[in-house]
Simulated scan of single mutants.
Amino acid sequence: MELNEFKQRLRLRTYGPARASEPAFLEIKKKFLKKTYKRRVTVDYQTATAFLMTQVLPTNQITREVAALRVQQQDPVIKIAYDRVALHATQATSDLRISFDRNVRYDMAELDIATETIGYQLLKPGMVLMEIKTE
């Protein structure tokens, strides 16, 4: 296998502001031979942040994988936020998804996603990031 043919990381994701009782997603994102796979478990934000400290979650296959990866992975390194418009194909036979992200910003010092202040713009003013996903 060449360098970077397999990568995986753990991430904590919320849609909207991170609040104690709101849904949060602990995701494993794997890239293998240029294909991306995601596995995630949905818990409330308070449970997700407690897990990152104690590594204790209700037990099922995905949470065991998340816990194993958390043991291997170091502390968080970056927080990314954006305002997204996501579009999905309406035909059942299509897996086409297109998203438009604006106001893309990041922070490498304040990593708590419950803190809405995020320091640095990633794109030049007026720019939009478009992502197209399909098999």
Results as ranks from 00 to 15, higher is better:
51 F>Y: 04
65 E>M: 06
87 L>K: 02
103 N>H: 15
49 T>N: 11
50 A>N: 04
91 Q>S: 15
124 K>Y: 12
7 K>S: 13
32 F>R: 09
16 G>S: 06
105 R>A: 10
76 P>L: 08
126 G>A: 06
20 A>F: 07
118 I>L: 07
113 I>F: 06
22 E>L: 10
86 A>F: 00
115 T>A: 11
9 R>P: 01
91 Q>Y: 14
34 K>G: 00
34 K>S: 02
98 I>V: 14
97 R>L: 09
21 S>T: 12
86 A>R: 06
51 F>I: 01
87 L>T: 08
9 R>N: 05
91 Q>F: 09
87 L>P: 08
20 A>T: 13
57 L>E: 03
16 G>M: 06
64 R>Y: 13
22 E>A: 11
74 Q>M: 11
105 R>D: 02
83 D>T: 05
107 D>M: 02
106 Y>D: 00
110 E>S: 11
76 P>W: 01
33 L>R: 10
7 K>W: 07
91 Q>R: 09
53 M>D: 10
110 E>T: 15
80 I>Y: 00
5 E>I: 00
95 D>K: 04
125 P>R: 12
131 E>D: 12
86 A>S: 09
67 A>S: 13
20 A>R: 10
17 P>A: 08
53 M>R: 14
93 T>D: 08
25 F>N: 10
82 Y>G: 05
34 K>V: 00
35 K>V: 07
109 A>Y: 14
28 I>V: 03
70 R>H: 08
83 D>S: 15
55 Q>G: 10
50 A>T: 05
35 K>T: 08
44 D>H: 04
119 G>H: 05
110 E>N: 10
54 T>M: 12
53 M>Q: 11
97 R>H: 09
69 L>W: 00
33 L>F: 06
46 Q>G: 03
78 I>S: 02
37 Y>N: 09
84 R>W: 10
119 G>C: 14
13 R>N: 08
113 I>M: 08
10 L>G: 01
46 Q>T: 01
80 I>C: 03
109 A>Q: 08
118 I>G: 01
43 V>M: 02
8 Q>M: 02
10 L>A: 03
37 Y>S: 09
87 L>G: 04
31 K>Q: 05
117 T>W: 07
107 D>G: 10
65 E>F: 04
87 L>M: 06
121 Q>S: 09
77 V>R: 07
102 R>Y: 13
115 T>I: 10
128 V>I: 13
27 E>S: 15
135 E>L: 10
111 L>Q: 14
125 P>M: 06
67 A>W: 08
49 T>Q: 09
79 K>L: 13
47 T>S: 14
112 D>W: 06
129 L>F: 15
17 P>F: 14
95 D>R: 03
65 E>I: 03
90 T>Y: 12
